[in-house]
Amino acid sequence: MSYLQIRNVWKTYEDNVILEKLNFTIEKGEFCTLIGPSGCGKSTFLRMLLGQDTPSRGTILLEDQPLSSEPGSDRGVVFQKYTLFPHLKALENVMLGLEMEHSPLLGKVFGSTRKRIKEEAMVMLKAVGLEQSAHKYPSELSGGMQQRLSIAQALVKKPKILLLDEPFGALDPGSRADMHVLVRGLWQTYGLTVFMVTHDVKEAFELGTRLLVFDKVRNDPHAPNAYGATLVNDIKLDRNKRKYKGETYDTINETPVA
């Protein structure tokens, strides 16, 4: 069976239909990008994948199991901003997820476990190019560096799927291009399954192996909320992206970990 299955998913708020008849599957290792006009339910869909919201109808299965109705460590996420812990240094931000896994009571570990976790987090920081900033607070990092850190934070938990919600929307074009190279590189080295929402069409085409488009197909001018958006386009992009763009990643990732 497919890795992530979206089966006849609808989302309605009272009389407003936001999303209707969503039916598609995503395979392990795909890099899906989702675009659509604003208000087409992209964010609503991502909220459902995250567990912040549940479908009004239909089910979403991850590895044949229904998604839990609250966020969990099987789904990692990177938002546009506000997702770093301001009181923790960069390295500690990455360590946090691992620490909580090992210490249910204190959420903090000591001694040899701490050392091991620290090393693991450091590897992740290196992978996103932040080893120099390990001991800085998030407020001392630039916007691009903060997003790198946020990615490292999510990846260290080895999520089954990585959800990106317009992660580069607040960045300047230069750091955005750097981030594209980084994310593609990480996707390749770690064999990630990525689902990214963006409103940058170019970005969606460049990064993804598959492009999904949400839009309304029916529209009643007298009842604008009667019909929701659905999947109108499902484009397979270059299947060999992993291999043939390989040289770009190697420059940022000398030591693949996975």
Binding site: P71, S73, V77, L84, G97, E99, M100, P104, K157
Partner: peptide
């Protein structure tokens, strides 16, 4: 966003209170 993020890092309610 921060509260969602920490939940995706596997935190329990108690851990969220304690560490965040």
């Amino acid at each position: 966003e921060l509260l969602i993020k920490v939940q995706t890092l596997g935190a329990s309610t108690w851990q969220i209170i304690l560490r965040v």
